[in-house]
């Protein structure tokens, strides 16, 4: 009996381990599963008791309805334009700034580095009033360029932050050699450094794109028209024909449509994203 006890404890431990893992997976994945199931139900099935946990007769037509009952295609296009534009501009300006901060010794480098960090930490709400007045004044209210402009508030410092950590990891000898050969800083950046921090560009670009794609507060506040509405606002403001019950099947269908590309992106680039997030967070 005595020498069997460790074995018993081992198996008990295994059972607890796999049970814990099962509960964890259920907790992580069930809400998204439920969104998919709900998106395939008819209104009657949605509001029927008892609740069915598997779609009985999948209503794929729900996915068509979100594009016909409202200009959802337009919202998707707007989101792509906003997130794409924000990402490209952040990368363009971010590379220059990260090169300067990561490579050059100059007075004011440290304060600028910390100022960037501070900008990512402060709440965007504290600039909301001033920004509202500014974009009204610039004639950018309720426009796509207006959203791209305001999104630089959080994507640009974050991009600079991530790219700087990548620049610092590349030894500077190659650029020094380029300088001695008479290259300008822009040539050194373009020909020598840029190819080497390409993975950093992908990581920073992805994270900027995701941030901009998901942004809600500014999109809700700085747009009113459907022509400039982005997907998060559309999903939040989804309303049905009756004011009593929301069309949850359509809301969930729209949710699945905007989430799936993002999930695919994250799953493909998961190593890079985790590296970028932890680099931004841990090395800070």
């Amino acid at each position: 009996m005595n020498f069997e006890l460790p074995k018993l404890r081992f198996f008990a431990g295994r059972i607890v381990f796999w049970f814990g893992l099962g509960v964890l997976l259920f907790y992580l994945l069930f809400p998204f599963y439920w969104a998919i199931v709900s998106s395939l139900k008819t209104s009657n099935q949605l509001f029927a008791t008892p609740i069915s946990y598997i779609p009985q007769t999948p209503q794929w037509s729900n996915y068509a309805s979100i594009f016909t009952t409202q200009p959802f295609g337009r919202f998707l296009l707007n989101s792509f334009l906003v997130a794409g534009g924000t990402t490209l501009l952040s990368l363009l300006f971010g590379v220059f700034a990260a090169y300067a901060i990561g490579r050059f010794e100059f007075r004011g480098r440290q304060p600028i580095y910390y100022a960037m960090l501070a900008v990512t930490m402060f709440p965007s709400i504290s600039v909301l009033g001033g920004l509202f007045v500014l974009i009204r004044g610039l004639g950018l209210y309720d426009t796509i360029p207006g959203l791209i402009f305001t999104y630089m508030l959080f994507t640009l410092p974050f991009t600079i932050w991530v790219l700087t950590s990548f620049v610092r990891e590349i030894p500077s000898e190659l650029e020094e050699a380029a300088f001695i050969d008479g290259a300008t800083p822009f040539q050194a950046l373009h020909k020598v450094l840029l190819p080497m921090i390409a993975p950093g560009l992908v990581t920073a670009g992805l994270l900027a794109f995701i941030q901009a794609w998901n942004e809600f507060l500014f999109a809700l506040t700085f747009t009113v028209n459907e022509n400039s509405r982005t997907v998060p606002v559309a999903i939040a403001l989804f309303s049905g024909t009756s004011s009593f019950e929301l069309p949850w099947n359509l809301i969930m269908a729209a949710s699945v449509v905007v989430t799936v590309p993002l999930l695919v992106l994250v799953l493909i680039f998961q190593q890079r994203i985790v590296a970028g997030l932890t680099a931004g967070a841990v090395k800070g």
Binding site: L28, A35, W213, N214, P232, I235, V258, V266
Partner: peptide, 12 residues
């Protein structure tokens, strides 16, 4: 959960 947009997971 991290990859799902905040608005979407809130509605879910």
């Amino acid at each position: 959960p991290w990859a799902i947009p905040g608005v979407v997971s809130s509605q879910m």
